[in-house]
Design a protein around this nucleic acid. Structure first.
Length: 994
DNA sequence: ACACCGTAC
């Protein structure tokens, strides 16, 4: 190959240029003229030579091909003949300004004392500066021109691609699609054959690298498979080649050929690499599918999967790293590595974070708090704790790394334990609710952020930790936000503890500001390019637009090249979209390839969720209709297209009314980028945003409202109070919650008896803080001691914490599901007792899965409920509440519920709606409740949610006199005495003293 | 006439 590419030359030249400029700036230049001047000239000469090598562009640079030194001399001669002629050059504004400054500077010096030589030197300096500025302008212009050119190329490529699509559409109309596909496939086949022959000829007698050999083998395999299929299989629909290489015809062949040659030599040209990587990824994919299809399906699959996975990692590395030395060395290292573990170690070195190991350790050494910014896949979560361990930080205590999700904590811990070649739960462990997989030996501990928060309660200085890393901090969960405040606090009196805040966002300055200007350490990520498309005009109906877009992609893009992911807002919307898609694809029949529709949302039963992870059948395409669950919580392989309508359903809590509202709101820019990124996980992807670019740049917020500002804080306030933080209004939150919400929480805790009038924790409050539940539920459990029904109450508490996912109600079987649910309401009981019945009946069947299935109950939620119940049982014993059962006395249970929920009372009105007592407001019983038709006079409810109406959910009937009996500090007799009268109670009289 | 996500010693 010839000299460095033009890009490289230019970059080098610019770099030198900057150094020169830096060196010459300021007064230094004048103080060390003798030193500086010759150096300048030499460096300039190098720059110039380099620019000359870059011949195409050099012509655009004024004077670029003329030797600087010669020019200088000429210009000086001219100047010395005509020293006052200063206006022959037309500089930019900044140039002129700089010149003026310079002149002023030289005027400051007394003119008469200046020797001729000094003036000469000064002039050279000035000329130098001018020339440099001019060159800078030139390079900017050059860059702009390049950009323009590449844009033009892009347009051209797009035009060609569109022309092809038109072709395809025409083919669809005129010829039968089958015929068209067949033809195209044959053409493809010929192309592959040519390609293989070409390469074989080219590489004849050359010793090939292993990768190259494999590549050739793949190509042959592909050829065989395709040939076989085109001979045997008449159903072309099931399989055809992707469009990717039709677009550029012969030119592209050349490119591919060139790339094949340069592959291990020239890695600078990103586009070529992408093109190749895409093709290779496709080939790998196809071969894998072909081999999988003929192999046994149930076993050995994991091995095959691993094999492919590694190959994919390999090709990712080539994209990121490239370069002849590194690659071959790696190749050697890999082929030498025999055991799986050695391979893991080799993989570790290929992660983007690896080159930063030393500087990272240095930074951690020098600073107590460090903000780490790195894209997903940079290896920060798995590698950094290991580096710190290797550097000896674990001698003083554990390294804790928090994750917002349980699965993440578990899987990362498993991966790291493999890499370190230790058993999971020994040196490397994880801690999540219900599962503590650590021991005394544990030095690296992955845990959920909520879990670390709980650990704070038992160990307020976290002395067993030497390093705490808060991962995925940009997600700003309630727990991470609290951890920020607490960690910042302990960092002050524990100078030995190190804090790492890791985030994927570019908004790291905010984190840095919060942690007293902590330094930001950036690790470049590894990612495939994602092409982003906006709509031209705003779309009125995003659901319809999403469906149309999905079908467009399905028809226009080659089948088998990647699946589609659509972000919708909720279960109902997903079900609607599913039906419409089914209808439309059914209407098209066999004209288009098969479209597999996979819904996914958190409340979908596990068996149905699994469908989304199954491999897409050959020749078909999967379209995944997902809620926000696909944004962060789960990753689906094979997604190439993302459709983003730009909306999300979010929960907002209004502390004034105590009402939660589920609102569909536009997403944030951060969210939009996260969604787009889901398409570029395993190869180049495309994202279709169903809103305009203007909307994105001008109407979307940068980040979503952090959870702490839109949630009920009762639990948070109780936890913090039990940590001894009593002044919550001045607590150092990164984004403080509205003070109204804090006050509301304090008010509630006071009413529940958890705090005294000085805001201090009471005995009851201390007990309540032990429970990982809402304070109202905790109070209910604490009160059960008095009513002797703790056994039932902890079941109800456990069931209420999973309330929304107990009953499964699919759209097409709503009637069946509703009938099944009625069985639990026999005896006209409230929702609380119905939940108790569900649990007890399930327990009687010995926790049968079949029983759940028969009764439209979610097994997953029930299991979770059982776990929570077991945990509560343990805590109940510890806080010395007697565990007794009193199943006969339902009134005791209702009274117990009232002890926690007296503030959530509502009274029936004449027209069938309810009016909440404390903050007068019209509410309705949620249609899912068993009491929505019975309409009892007085009820307590678990929660108040605004969806389409103000609904109260999980309702039980109570007697009004209980309110006064149980909460005399909250209700007076006159609040409930108008029991018999039909008159509406006046709002004025009901407000009570606190 | 109806439900986003995730999490808690």
């Amino acid at each position: 190959m010839d000299v460095p590419s033009s890009n490289e030359t230019r970059a080098f030249a610019e770099e030198i240029f900057q150094k020169v400029e830096h060196k010459s700036s300021g007064s230094n230049l004048y103080r060390h003229q003798e030193e500086a001047a010759p150096m300048l000239t030499r460096k300039q000469r190098i720059t110039c030579t380099l620019l000359e090598a870059d011949d195409d562009d050099a012509k655009d640079v004024p004077g670029g091909s003329v030797s600087v030194v010669d020019k200088d001399v000429k210009r000086f001669r001219k100047r010395s003949e005509n020293p006052d002629d200063d206006d022959d050059d037309e500089g930019s504004g900044s140039l002129k300004q700089e010149r003026r400054v310079k002149q002023k500077y030289s005027h400051d010096k007394p003119d008469d004392s200046e020797s001729e030589e000094e003036r000469f030197r000064d002039q050279i300096e000035r000329e130098d500066l001018e020339r440099r500025l001019r060159e800078k302008d030139a390079s900017r212009i050059r860059k702009l021109t390049e950009q323009k050119l590449s844009k033009r190329d892009e347009k051209e490529a797009m035009r060609r691609a569109n022309a092809l699509k038109d072709d395809e559409i025409r083919a669809l109309r005129n010829v039968s699609r089958q015929e068209y596909l067949k033809k195209r496939e044959q053409k493809k086949l010929e192309e592959i054959k040519d390609d293989i022959e070409d390469e074989e000829y080219l590489f004849e007698g050359v010793k090939l690298t292993e990768a190259k050999q494999r590549e050739l083998r793949y190509k042959k395999q592909v050829y065989e498979v395709v040939k076989k299929r085109s001979q045997v299989d008449d159903n072309v629909n099931e399989y055809h080649m992707p469009d990717g290489y039709d677009e550029e015809g012969g030119v592209n062949q050349e490119k591919r050929f060139a790339v094949a040659l340069e592959r291990y030599i020239d890695s600078k040209d990103g586009d070529k690499m992408n093109l190749f990587a895409e093709q290779e990824a496709w080939e790998d994919h196809q071969i894998n599918k072909a081999t999988l299809k003929f192999g046994s399906k149930n076993k050995k699959q994991s091995d095959d999967y691993n094999f492919v996975f590694e190959d994919q990692i390999e090709f990712i590395q080539e994209q990121v790293m490239g370069g002849v030395d590194v690659d071959e060395e790696e190749e050697r290292e890999r082929s030498i590595a025999k055991s799986a573990h050695e391979k893991l170690l080799a993989d570790r070195k290929t992660l983007p974070v690896y080159p930063y190991r030393e500087s990272l350790l240095k930074a951690v050494e020098d600073h107590q708090v460090l903000i780490i910014v790195g894209e997903t896949g940079s290896g920060k979560t798995t590698q950094i704790p290991q580096y710190l361990h290797e550097a000896g930080y674990t001698k003083r205590g554990m390294i804790g790394c928090t994750q917002p999700r349980r699965v993440a904590a578990m899987s990362v811990a498993a991966r790291v334990s493999q890499e370190m070649n230790v058993k999971l739960g020994h040196e490397v462990g994880y801690a999540i609710r219900f599962e503590d997989c650590t021991c005394e030996k544990t030095v690296i501990k992955y845990l959920t952020d909520g879990m670390l928060l709980r650990e704070f309660l038992g160990e307020p200085d976290l002395k067993s930790y030497s390093v705490v890393m808060v991962d995925e901090a940009h997600e700003r969960t309630l727990s991470t936000d609290l951890l920020f405040g607490l960690l910042k606090q302990i960092a002050r009196f524990r100078p030995d503890i190190k804090l790492l805040i890791s985030s994927a966002t570019l908004d790291a300055e905010k984190f840095s500001d919060y942690f007293d200007c902590a330094p930001i350490f950036r690790i470049p990520g590894r990612r495939f390019p994602v092409e982003i498309n906006y709509t031209k005009v705003p779309e009125a109906d995003y659901l319809d637009a999403a469906i149309v877009t999905a079908l467009q992609i399905h028809v226009n893009e080659p089948a088998g090249d990647g699946d589609i992911l659509v972000f919708l807002t909720g279960q109902e919307e997903i079900e609607t979209a599913q039906e419409i898609l089914k209808q439309r694809t059914h209407g098209l029949g066999s004209k288009i390839p098969e479209l597999v529709i996979c819904p996914i949302y958190a409340n979908l039963p596990t068996e149905l969720q699994a469908k989304v992870f199954e491999a897409t059948p050959q020749g078909a395409r999967k379209v995944v209709l997902a809620t926000n669950i696909a944004e962060t919580s789960l990753t689906i392989d094979g997604i190439k297209y993302v459709i983003d309508p730009g909306f999300v359903k979010m929960n907002f809590y209004d502390p004034r009314t105590g009402m939660e509202s589920l609102k569909i709101i536009p997403i944030s820019k951060a969210s939009a980028n996260q969604r787009a990124g889901r398409s570029g996980r395993t190869g180049p992807g495309k994202c279709f945003r169903l809103y305009t670019a203007y909307t994105y740049y001008n109407e979307l917020d940068d980040n979503s409202v952090p959870e702490i500002q839109r949630t009920n804080l009762a639990n948070v306030v109780l936890s913090l109070t039990s940590l001894g933080i009593d002044d919550l209004l001045t607590f150092d939150f990164m984004d403080p919650p509205p003070s109204e919400a804090v006050l509301k929480a304090l008010e509630l805790l006071f009413a529940l008896g958890a705090l005294n009038k000085y805001g201090e924790l009471t005995k009851v409050g201390r007990k309540m803080a032990e429970f990982p539940l809402d304070p109202m539920l905790s109070k209910m459990i604490v009160a059960s001691d008095k009513y002797k029904c703790s056994d039932e109450i902890i079941t109800i508490a456990a069931m209420l914490s999973i309330e929304n996912s107990v009953f499964y109600r699919p759209k097409n079987k709503q009637v069946h599901a509703d009938n099944a649910r009625l069985n639990f309401y026999t005896g006209n009981v409230g929702d609380h007792v119905a939940l108790l019945n569900v649990y007890n009946l399930w327990k009687e069947t010995n926790f049968s899965a079949q029983w759940c299935y028969d009764n439209y109950i979610q097994l997953r939620s029930m299991k979770q409920g059982r776990d929570i119940r077991d945990q509560l049982k343990g805590i109940v014993e510890r806080v010395e509440i007697e565990l007794v059962s009193n199943s006969g006395d339902l009134d005791a249970i209702y009274k117990c519920i009232t002890s926690g929920y007296f503030s959530h009372s509502a009274k029936l009105q004449k027209n069938g709606c309810y009016r909440s007592v404390k903050h007068p407001q019209t509410v309705y019983i949620h249609p899912s409740s068993g009491l929505c038709e019975a309409l009892p006079r007085w009820v307590v409810y678990h929660e108040l949610v605004l969806t389409t109406k103000e609904y109260v959910r999980q309702v039980s009937e109570i007697k009004p006199e209980w309110l006064v009996e149980i909460a005399p500090h909250y209700y007076e007799l006159k609040d409930v005495e108008d029991l018999g009268s039909k008159k509406l109670p006046r709002g004025k009289g009901r407000a009570s003293k606190l």
